[in-house]
Design a protein around this nucleic acid. Structure first.
Lengths: 341, 341
DNA sequence: GCTTCAAATGTTAACGTTAACATCCGGTGA
DNA sequence: TCACCGGATGTTAACGTTAACATTTGAAGC
């Protein structure tokens, strides 16, 4: 409890319903009715009350209303890492949906990793003015931690997670669809020797993308060669690209994200292999804001906004959706893939 | 009022102080004392109450407490565009500071532009559970709008703005320092013919950067040539770069942001002018995540996190800071600038 | 003129919390 | 023995709102 240490921050004396009522010469209930657009008020009375509100500078008390209604018109959002691109777009989607419904979003920082902190967060959240929670748990351990520490959450909970959970509605991007679609695109363009540059081992997204690529290849009777592992960064992509450039049989590379794809392309070029003429490259996430040397990277875009919106609707909606919702995106075809005969 | 249209979202029956009191055989006040770590409770009694809390699953009612204390332990944040990089980092800083103080952040989307919406936002915010407001007004019109529509804000207000305002504490990145430092860097390296690629005319940041560059040049007795205007995008930078490439006397380019600088470099290269050998280029904002062809862009980094943190502290702190706070950043030297004799 | 009805408005109580004050209790000093 | 003290606990009232019910008002129908 650091409550004691925080500054008091007193607010200005508020104008209450009673003040307005006195000013307008009516009862508080009538003022309440006007404030809530109840039709059971004579236009004349309503006008008098509205005028009193304006003159006194009345604004309703959130606390009073919430206490009475036991409802906050707000959704809590626990995020461990706001700063990644996908997260931010989701946040945008959540805010948009919230604004439409007249809800506010209450952010609380989930300090990374430590699974036992989930309990702390849940406890803090329970004392917060929110009707539901959205958890952005970017580590597998956090999802497990939630299960262990919050056997029965008090609020409705939604999590961005591709792993189902008994007490959480889970929503996430459909990673398998992403990798499968891109692999199929390359296959349709005649490529057979498709290598993959995957992400770090502890990334769920990377694993799922890798597995979907592997499955798609096997389904077509093709032998998926060993993927090259990167760490999502352009630099690691450059290293991966250098490895791949040495293998002349490879005609296409599926890279697990755009940043690495950038590095792969640069490495291939530095090794004398031109993209897309000699090697086709596809990325994923569609996160590039500019092109390198006029090459436009074919990628796969998730509608992160929509995923955020969906999470919000699940959190406040009446309908209980499926426990796990995987949202597919779409392939964005550009100029980094070439047909081969 | 769209309150009626929103779903009721009832919460589970809450456990109140009274329930815990009954269970522990004490008065509600004693339970309250335990909940607030008051020392005036016998250890034995405290233990009995804590046990009752655990057994009943008590969690304090935010609404009840706020109603009594007239304080929310939360700060509102109105943002029109969460998705830009600087904004996100500021948000990170705000959240960090808020977490340390035990505050929550309540986000509300400020739908763009329309100045009269400021009033709507202010009204909605006044009914929100917040003790202070942070406004992220990215358009000049919004700042003016605030002045016009909210002559006397009810809450303490902080805005990210480089223009002072009577009822707002304003905080922003020191754009002038940014452009001045970069220009001085180029001057120190021997450059005399320094052109500028600036941003759109309606951008305050662009104007301030342009003006500072101009002033620095004039101070040194140099004649600032007409700046080339872009729109912050890499594409517009490419166009600007093509213009500049035609002028062989230019030895250095100050570009108003990194994205455009990227385009400038590409254009120069396409016109046979190598960076940094033939032309030195500096960007601003330090927003690039990877390098193009191993060229590392010299840039200028703001500590956006710190700016966010400062805004939060101003919002909740007791001390009334200066009305306008401009936070300088630092030059980040890399390999895109070369000494000339 | 009286009943009946509906519309408009008022009254009461409760939501969960805490500040301020009141009470109780055991021990200390006269 | 008793007044007094201070620590521990209880009681009361209030924060601003709204649901539920009560009351008033005016008009229509007989």
């Amino acid at each position: 409890m650091d409550r004691a240490s925080s500054s008091p921050t007193p607010r200005q004396p508020k104008v209450s319903l009673a003040d307005v009522a006195r000013l307008a010469g009516v009862s508080t209930q009538t003022v309440s009715r006007v404030a809530n657009d109840s039709p059971a008020v004579r236009p004349e009375t309503r006008e008098r009350v509205l005028d009193a509100m304006r003159r006194s500078g009345y604004s309703p008390s959130f606390a009073g209303r919430s206490l009475k209604l036991n409802r906050y018109q707000a959704v809590g959002l626990a995020m461990s890492n706001v700063v990644s691109t996908g997260n931010v777009k989701r946040l945008g989607g959540i805010m948009e949906a919230a604004a439409q419904r007249g809800y506010a979003i209450t952010l609380v920082q989930a300090t990374d990793d430590a699974p036992e902190q989930i309990e702390e967060i849940e406890r803090r959240m329970a004392a917060l003015p929110v009707d539901a929670m959205i958890y952005n748990l970017n580590r597998r351990s956090l999802v497990d931690g939630f299960l262990a520490f919050v056997p029965q959450p008090r609020l409705r909970c939604v999590a961005f997670s591709s792993i189902a959970h008994p007490h959480l509605a889970c929503i996430d991007a459909d990673q398998a669809h992403c990798a499968r679609s891109l692999t199929e695109l390359l296959l349709a363009r005649g490529h057979r020797s498709i290598r993959m540059v995957t992400g770090p081992e502890d990334s769920i997204a990377a694993c799922q993308r890798e597995q979907a690529w592997r499955e798609t290849m096997v389904e077509r009777g093709l032998d998926p060669s060993e993927p090259v592992r990167g760490d999502w960064s352009a630099t690691s992509g450059y290293e991966a690209g250098s490895v791949i450039a040495d293998d002349p049989s490879t005609t296409a590379v599926l890279v697990a994200n755009d940043d690495m794809a950038m590095g792969v392309i640069e490495a291939l070029r530095d090794h004398g292999r031109h993209v897309p003429h000699d090697v086709s490259v596809v990325g994923a996430d569609d996160s590039l804001k500019w092109s390198v040397a006029k090459l436009e990277l074919t990628s796969y875009a998730f509608d992160e906004r929509e995923i955020g919106r969906l999470a919000f609707e699940t959190a406040v909606g009446d309908a209980q959706g499926p426990a796990l919702m995987l949202v597919p995106g779409t392939v964005v075809e550009r100029s980094s893939v070439r047909d081969i005969s």
